[in-house]
Design a binder for these strands. Structure first.
Length: 429
RNA sequence: GUGGCCGUAGCUCAGCUAGGUGAGAGCGCCAGGUUGUGGCCCUGGAGGUCGGGGGUUCAAAUCCCCUCGGUCACCCCA
């Protein structure tokens, strides 16, 4: 054991978040929420815990389902699992409540996957995303991709690429998969051992391998383009044309498969080249036209995407964009008397809408001034025995070069409101 | 899950290669210099199970094993 008894640490791959990271994440979600709602999406919050079966449709052969889920039997004897992503839960909610279509929703939340942690890949990770159920129009694919892309752009990221592919409909995908499986079988002895194992479980997954020795084999594998039905191909062309017309740059990548079995037709991924780690996909998504039916609902077209907040922020760090918004109070109250004046004034200022803080436990004027400085407050209100007996306070400007004045206690609030107001006008001018 | 690297003060790290000189630096924190004034500077101080456990040894932060955590590659994916 790495710790003495009675001492605990957070689980591997799960981290505590603090200021300023927490505010930064809140700001990121706000950027996304505003864009999504401007496009007619409403927020949805499915539960973190679902019946295991909900997630099994991601594909029994996928790693996510076969070995990465936190699943267990609850006290009612039900097999349940912590969600490894949100799409399945959202679609389950759609099937359960049958809202009118098109159903356009966005979400922000935490999912869980028991993988080996690495930078940008944690066991508890946050995503933002959107899903639309009930629309087959390729222009919707364009809208959804555009929402993902523009959110990333809004953060200030520029070293990112959109890659896109179409796996064809269910029939196309099946035929293609069989063809790839046959091809891989023919070249079995040229593949790495790991790739051979993957080929038997899930042939398509071999296509986007990163192992150089396998890439050579994969390079001349059959192309999905030859397997797309006329309708699928037409849909894909419409999507690409739509993206072009919106000025969204993309690269068609036929090897883009993505891990979840429910994807049909359009699939896409956004990668951040500023992230040199292997975890450089900041987001991904696609169509899952059969999923609602698989979960017991009516045949319903669906499409969505998720962006990983952790990776998005890592990419922001790499590009030095989207810093945490500064958080600081407006006013810091310094009281060298018994503290009663600070207690009352801070309360009064907060009720008036100002952000005000103080120090508890007293301390010298000097040390309280240091706290005031560190708080980032623009103004310090000083209350000493002089002020107290005169019924006044001293206002000191902490930002400029120490402008200082005394005002009557009854005028503090108004004096501060006025000065903070002009400060703000100065900074926005 | 497989393999590599790392783990010393709140933070970033030196010391480990050839075991033994009182366990260090910078930043941060606290106090004083300035008995009513922050930011700069100076001085002092607090703070460490050297990730944890076991082993080798007269002696281990330094060597060996195990373990926990982080990280990189594979895998997978957000």
């Amino acid at each position: 054991m790495a710790r003495p008894e009675q001492s605990f640490r957070s689980l591997s791959g799960m981290h505590d978040l603090f200021e300023p990271e927490t505010t930064r994440r809140r700001a990121l979600v706000r950027v996304f929420a505003e864009r999504a709602e401007r496009a007619g999406y409403g927020e949805v919050r499915p539960p973190v815990l679902e019946e295991l079966g909900v997630f099994l449709r991601m594909g029994e052969a996928t790693d996510v389902v076969s070995k990465e889920m936190y699943e267990f039997e609850d006290k009612d004897g039900r097999r349940v699992a912590l969600r490894p992503e949100l799409t399945a839960g959202v679609v389950r909610a759609f099937v359960q409540h049958h809202p009118p279509t098109p159903w356009k929703v966005w979400y922000a939340g935490t999912s869980f996957r028991r993988e080996r942690p690495a930078a940008g890949r944690y066991r508890a990770f946050d995503q933002i995303g959107a899903e639309v159920l009930g629309v087959d129009d390729p222009d919707l694919d364009v809208e959804v991709i555009s929402l993902a892309w523009s959110t990333i752009a809004a953060l200030g990221l520029s070293d990112v690429r959109l890659i896109i592919n179409s796996l064809g409909d269910q029939v196309d995908r099946q035929r293609y998969s069989e063809s790839v499986a046959a091809y891989l079988a023919d070249h079995r002895d040229e593949l790495s051992e790991a790739a051979r194992a993957t080929a038997e479980r899930n042939p398509l997954r071999v296509l986007d391998t990163k192992r150089p020795e396998d890439r050579a084999v994969v390079a001349s594998a059959p192309s999905i383009a030859e397997f797309r039905s006329e309708a699928s191909a037409a849909h894909f062309e419409r999507v690409l044309a739509g993206l072009s017309s919106l000025g969204i740059p993309f690269g068609v990548e036929e090897r883009l498969v993505r891990g979840l079995d429910y994807y049909r037709r359009t699939t896409f991924e956004i990668v951040a080249d500023s992230l040199d780690a292997a975890q450089n996909a900041v987001g991904g998504g696609g169509r899952y036209d059969g999923l609602a039916e698989d979960l017991g609902g009516p045949p319903t077209d669906g499409i969505g995407f998720a962006l990983g907040i952790d990776r998005l922020l890592l990419a922001c760090d790499a590009e030095a964009v989207f810093p945490a918004p500064p958080t600081s109070v407006d006013v810091y109250v310094v009281d060298t008397t018994d503290g009663a004046a600070a207690r009352n004034l801070v309360h009064q200022l907060r009720e008036a809408g100002l952000a005000a803080d103080r120090r508890y436990g007293g301390g010298s004027l000097k040390s309280q001034m240091k706290s005031a400085d560190r708080s980032g407050a623009r103004w310090a209100v000083l209350i000493g025995s002089d002020e107290l007996s005169a019924g006044e306070v001293t206002l000191r400007n902490l930002r400029a070069d120490g402008e200082q004045l005394r005002v009557a206690s009854s005028d503090v609030r108004a004096a501060l409101l006025e000065r903070l107001h002009t400060d703000r006008e100065d900074t926005t001018a």
